[in-house]
Nucleic acid binder design. Structure first.
Lengths: 184, 184
DNA sequence: ACCTGTCGTTCGTCAAGCCGAACTCGAGGA
DNA sequence: TCCTCGAGTTCGGCTTGACGAACGACAGGT
């Protein structure tokens, strides 16, 4: 769930952002309103910056806060249709394994789900911060967090937090959709 | 690009995570290895925590660091097929408007792209932290960051950082794909 | 009523982050 | 060669976050 050390990551991230801006550390410190000595120590990996200090740097770098504390850059990942976890429910209800099959270590998973009317599937909350993306391939669906379900037509896209109960219900025959689960 | 203030957000996030765990502040402090007086001040919105302190809390809460500093929870968003930015290129090359049409304020956008062999589209880097998701609907594609392109078959899914140059090339006729752009 | 345990806050001390100034190093110009 | 300027590091001080202990408030048990 939680990953690598913070301090070295922060130091690298700051250097990376500064390189991207193409400015000196003195200039970055000036823009951020912090002492260049402070910035020097941060880039050296020394110390334990406060949130305000990091925030000031993130603002002038024009990047979200998380860019400075999360690991470097997301890699290129490919999930082959032939390999990925997919479940065809045919005319039967979704199995509970559909969403439970997500490997906990993975950052994202893709499922192709197919369903028939009446196959309502209620999913328990995933780990905090998990977000799902759903693109309807065919048929009509009703899906979303409990109490906030929306009707979806072919081609529609919906995203919602999945760390709370949520459901997928096919409203027409031969309904299918691509489901992307994004773990954090 | 960068959003709301940090301190109040952090205080709210910590309380929220602690509520979710259903434990007392004393217990959370004990697990995190920090003084409960420190945690008390943080939940009160007083002060300016160090990265290490916040990190310790995030670890025991089982959430990524960004959960504590970024705004609350992602909302449910729906992009209708009839409204969303979509371009059919038919037999002609992608127009440069394809990717440039992404509203800068949006957090995510969805495109349905169709292409024919020879229609290579090179995209300039998006803002830092932007990530793209691509699900192939039909045909074969070659896409990805410059130098790291991969071949994709129908149903394949790929995600990659889009803050660097990247390309999409259809390898077969009637190639189509769903493209999700995620801004940060 | 009394004791006991837990909760959350407040206070005094200590360590550490942040700051500004001084310093070293190196490149470019007269 | 000397001077000047900018980049980056190091050094004292001042401020502030983190800690442990003590405090009042409350609930449950005896």
């Amino acid at each position: 769930m939680n990953r690598t050390p913070p301090l070295a990551t922060i130091a690298a991230a700051i250097r990376r952002e500064r390189d991207r801006l193409g400015i000196s550390s003195a200039e970055l410190a000036r823009r951020a309103g912090i002492a260049k000595s402070t910035l020097s120590q941060l880039e050296a990996g020394t110390g334990n910056p406060s949130v305000e200090t990091l925030w000031a740097i993130a603002v002038v770098a024009g990047v979200p806060f998380s860019t400075l504390v999360e690991p470097p850059a997301p890699p290129v990942r490919v999930v082959r249709a032939s390999q990925r976890p997919a479940i065809r429910s045919e005319a039967s209800p979704f199995t509970s394994a559909l969403l439970a099959a997500c490997p906990p270590g993975a950052r994202r998973d893709v499922h192709v789900i197919t369903s028939e009317p009446g196959d309502a599937r209620a999913s328990d909350p995933h780990s905090p911060g998990t977000v799902e993306h759903m693109v309807v391939s065919s048929g009509r669906w009703n899906a979303g967090p409990a109490g906030e379900e929306v009707d979806l037509d072919p081609g529609d896209y919906v995203t919602f937090p999945a760390d709370r109960p949520h459901t997928y219900r096919a409203l027409t025959a031969d309904a299918s959709a691509v489901l992307v689960m994004e773990y954090r």
